[in-house]
Amino acid sequence: MKPFKLALFWLAFFATYLIIALAGYSLIPEGALVDIAMKYKPDITNEGWDNFMGYLIFIGSALVNAILIWIVVSIYQRSQAKGH
């Protein structure tokens, strides 16, 4: 694979990571999660909650993006194998 094509793939997957992370921030029902968290840890601070949500969204986005990369690469490899 040429370096230019590899760089385009990297930029595409980075863009999907950002889209997934932004979607996570806008679509996760934070109010419901706060209620659940308050049942188990009633003394959680705002800073602690922000840290938890940040870790949850960024790690979740990385996992979803890794699965997406795996799917795309496997489809790409199958198409390359059929071509040869």
Results as ranks from 00 to 15, higher is better:
P3Y: 02
F4M: 08
L6P: 01
L6V: 12
A7F: 03
L8S: 05
L8Q: 06
L8W: 05
F9L: 11
W10F: 14
L11G: 09
T16P: 00
Y17M: 07
L18E: 15
I19G: 03
I19V: 12
I19W: 10
I19R: 15
I20C: 10
A21H: 05
A21P: 01
A21V: 12
L22D: 14
A23F: 03
Y25V: 07
Y25R: 06
Y25K: 03
S26R: 15
S26L: 12
L27N: 07
L27Q: 14
I28P: 00
I28T: 02
P29S: 05
P29V: 08
P29W: 06
P29A: 05
E30I: 13
A32I: 09
L33T: 12
D35W: 03
I36V: 02
A37C: 07
A37D: 07
A37Q: 06
M38T: 12
K39E: 11
Y40K: 11
P42V: 02
P42N: 04
I44M: 06
E47P: 04
E47Y: 13
G48Y: 13
G48N: 04
W49Y: 14
W49G: 04
D50P: 04
D50K: 09
Y55C: 13
Y55D: 14
Y55Q: 13
L56N: 01
F58M: 08
I59D: 14
G60R: 03
G60Y: 02
G60H: 01
N65G: 12
A66F: 03
A66E: 04
I67F: 11
I69V: 15
I69K: 02
W70G: 15
W70T: 15
I71A: 09
I71H: 05
V73S: 08
S74A: 10
I75N: 05
I75D: 10
Y76S: 07
Y76G: 12
Q77C: 10
Q77S: 13
Q77L: 08
Q77F: 07
